[in-house]
Amino acid sequence: EDYYQILGVPRNASQKEIKKAYYQLAKKYHPDTNKDDPKAKEKFSQLAEAYEVLSDEVKRKQYDA
């Protein structure tokens, strides 16, 4: 799945936009606030993985290549 789609940001998003999108979605899908939703944990880990790659310039360049 596309990391940009997961975070809901365009491919040319700035680091600030990526961070903002991640924090909004992380708050929304955090397992502690969605105890009754088994998919929230999965969504949250996808968000974390996408953010880890896109927030790191080197990893992001490799991902975009």
Rank of each mutant, 00 (worst) to 15 (best):
E49K: 14
R11T: 05
R60T: 01
V9E: 00
S55L: 04
R60A: 01
I6H: 03
L25E: 05
S45C: 10
S14K: 07
F44P: 02
K16C: 12
A40K: 06
A21T: 04
T33Y: 14
S45W: 15
T33F: 14
A48D: 05
L54N: 00
Y3H: 04
K16L: 15
A48K: 14
K20Y: 14
K41Q: 14
L47C: 06
T33W: 09
Y29T: 04
Q5D: 08
E1Y: 13
Y63I: 03
A13S: 07
Y3E: 00
F44C: 05
A48H: 13
K28W: 07
A13V: 05
N34V: 10
K41A: 15
P31E: 12
E57R: 06
L7S: 00
A21Y: 03
A21Q: 06
N12D: 12
D37N: 10
K61A: 14
I18A: 00
D32L: 08
Y4S: 00
Q5V: 10
Q46P: 03
I6W: 07
Q15T: 13
V58K: 08
Y22G: 01
A65D: 15
Q24V: 12
N12A: 08
K61W: 05
S55A: 07
E17R: 12
N34P: 06
K19D: 15
E1Q: 14
D2L: 05
E49D: 08
A26Y: 15
V9T: 03
A21C: 05
K28T: 08
A50S: 03
H30Y: 08
Y63P: 02
N34Q: 08
L7D: 00
K59C: 05
S55P: 00
A48S: 12
P38I: 09
Q15E: 09
K35H: 14
Y22Q: 01
N12E: 06
K43G: 04
Y63M: 02
S14A: 05
D32T: 11
Y29Q: 05
A13P: 01
D32P: 06
D56S: 04
P38M: 13
K43P: 03
A48I: 13
K35A: 14
P10Y: 07
Y63N: 02
E52A: 15
A50W: 01
V58L: 12
K19G: 08
A40H: 07
Y29R: 05
V53W: 06
A40Y: 08
K59Q: 06
A40T: 07
A21V: 05
T33G: 14
K16M: 15
R60V: 01
F44D: 03
S55W: 04
P10V: 06
V58W: 11
Q15F: 15
K41Y: 14
A50C: 04
A21F: 03
K39D: 13
R11M: 05
A50R: 00
R11D: 03
